[in-house]
């Protein structure tokens, strides 16, 4: 198969910048960003929202999970430019302004669903997104483990995290 010759000038040496407008935790944000900046780095480095953690940076660990237009997604597998026009929610928006924990956070605290806490922001955002999704929620052990299957924890062994999700469902009247 013949392909057209690569045009002179298509080789890129500079880091292209693009203007993006998005909403982060309810606040309208305008920035000029490098097109290769990941959303996770944008949140942490540009906006100082370091609650979104970065683990593997290839979509496996789930630490960087945020809500992208209300749905849990990997901020390390999303470019900041792809989020142009979107609404992003991070862990910083979850507790009330006076510090009162959200029921999902409260449940993780009550059930000791964390030790070092590194994976917890991603866990909370994933669980929150699934609780806010329409449709039935499978709160059997298998269902909760399926819900959590995209988030790795290297401390707790998951028993308390599963308990925390069930407790969160009780607190939110979803059980």
């Amino acid at each position: 198969m013949t392909r057209p010759m690569k045009q002179a000038g298509s080789a890129r040496s500079g880091d292209a910048q693009v203007d993006v407008e998005l909403t982060v935790n309810g606040e309208a944000i305008r920035r000029s960003v490098s097109v290769r900046m990941l959303l996770s780095d944008f949140l942490r480095h540009e906006l100082g929202l370091t609650g979104t953690h970065v683990g593997c940076e290839h979509g496996v660990c789930g630490c960087c999970t945020v809500l992208i237009d209300g749905k849990p997604g990997r901020s390390c597998l999303t470019l900041a430019v792809q989020a142009n026009g979107y609404s992003i929610r991070t862990i910083e928006s979850v507790a009330a302004a006076d510090g009162t924990l959200h029921p999902v956070q409260q449940a993780f605290k009550e059930c000791h669903g964390l030790q070092c806490g590194y994976c917890t922001p991603g866990m909370v955002m994933n669980v929150l997104g699934r609780f806010e999704e329409e449709g039935p929620l499978d709160l059997s052990d298998d269902g909760i483990r399926e819900l959590l299957s995209g988030n790795l924890c290297r401390c707790t062994g998951y028993l308390n995290i599963v308990a925390a999700v069930r407790r969160a469902a009780e607190l939110l009247g979803r059980s």
Binding site: R12, G14, D15, A16, R36, L38, D41, V81
Partner: peptide, 11 residues
């Protein structure tokens, strides 16, 4: 930055 340099268009 994780990825190498690339161009970006959103037609």
């Amino acid at each position: 930055m994780k990825p190498s340099i690339f161009g970006y268009e959103a037609p």
